[in-house]
């Protein structure tokens, strides 16, 4: 009996984890693989969807975990299928695949606080808002977003931009609309939602969104991100840096803002740009309000 085919493949790696998920890793729980992609996979634990990144260099998602030391092998992503069980223990992820099972042991767990920060509107002037908006390459963001090739989305965005409708009127239509596992319409709403919560605005918008999501379903993954934001968690680590820059609008930070926006744009296929369209729209609205108040 030589060369037994080892069924349990062991991976030792530390882990980065969102503070949002930490409580779920404190006891043994059985979950199920929800979806598998080239660069990561989602699994459901109790009612929470969790994204496991494949490589160490991916930004930590609000509902995610990222290996700290070592990339996860391709083998796991080729073996694990939707519906496979996963056992979560305080320092272990165990995938029940066929023919192989994978045990990811993580002695080191680095927890990252992805809680939504708070910014005060009073700290921003009409000019500073205009300066900030000027750092966003709006046309390029639109052209690379999921809105570009989806007429209904671009049409709704036009209606918002031209003030023909306000966002509360279009929530229902944006939900679940567009391409991707996180549809562009959802990303847009989430970008807007994050901004409105950070600036302490839009209670009405959040409530409308919650109600609309009860009536109109979107993908499980978008749903999970919505819930995280409702629970005051950022979609991913990139947003933290954005808000640090916005909180301190110096010239030096203007350069950092440009770079950070560029980083955020590359998150996902079109998601980064879709998020940013939501951010931009919120900033435009804020600028508009400030300007009108000033006038």
């Amino acid at each position: 009996m030589n060369n037994l085919q080892q069924q349990i493949i062991k991976i030792d790696s530390g882990l980065r984890i969102s503070n949002y998920l930490r409580p779920l890793f404190e006891k043994t729980t059985i979950g199920k693989v929800h979806s598998v992609f080239t660069n990561g996979l989602n699994f459901r634990l109790n009612d929470q969807l969790i994204y496991l990144s494949k490589t160490t260099d991916q930004p930590l998602s609000g509902i995610g975990i990222v290996p700290l030391d070592e990339n996860i092998t391709n083998d796991l992503f080729q073996t694990i299928e939707q519906g496979n069980l996963i056992r979560v223990k305080p320092q272990e992820l165990f995938f029940y695949g066929k023919p192989n099972m994978y045990q990811i042991k993580f002695d080191i767990v680095k927890e990252f606080d992805l809680s939504l920060p708070t910014l005060k509107i009073v700290d921003f002037t009409v000019d500073s808002l205009a300066d900030i908006l000027a750092q966003f390459p709006i046309k390029s963001i639109f052209d690379n977003s999921g809105f570009r090739n989806e007429p209904s989305l671009s049409s709704m965005l036009s209606e918002l931009e031209s003030n023909k409708k306000n966002i509360n009127q279009l929530i229902f239509d944006f939900i679940g609309r567009g391409i991707g596992l996180t549809p562009s319409g959802d990303d847009f709403l989430q970008g807007y939602l994050v901004m409105s919560k950070v600036f302490g605005q839009g209670k009405e918008f959040e409530q409308n969104l919650i109600e609309s999501l009860k009536k109109r379903r979107t993908t499980d993954i978008s749903q999970a991100y919505y819930q995280a934001i409702f629970d005051n968690i950022l979609p991913n680590q990139l947003w933290q840096e954005l808000f640090l820059i916005l909180a301190n609008p110096t010239q030096e930070n203007t350069d950092r803002l440009i770079a950070q926006v560029e980083l955020m744009r590359h998150y996902g296929h079109t998601s980064g740009n879709d998020f940013l369209l939501g951010v931009i729209h919120f900033m435009k609205e804020l600028h508009h309000v400030k300007k009108n108040n000033k006038e």
Binding site: I30, L85, R87, Y96, K98, P99
Partner: peptide, 15 residues
């Protein structure tokens, strides 16, 4: 190890 021998069913692997 999740592999059916003889008259077995295709069953999800688990704990």
């Amino acid at each position: 190890s999740g592999v059916p021998l003889a008259f077995a069913n295709s069953v999800r692997t688990g704990n």
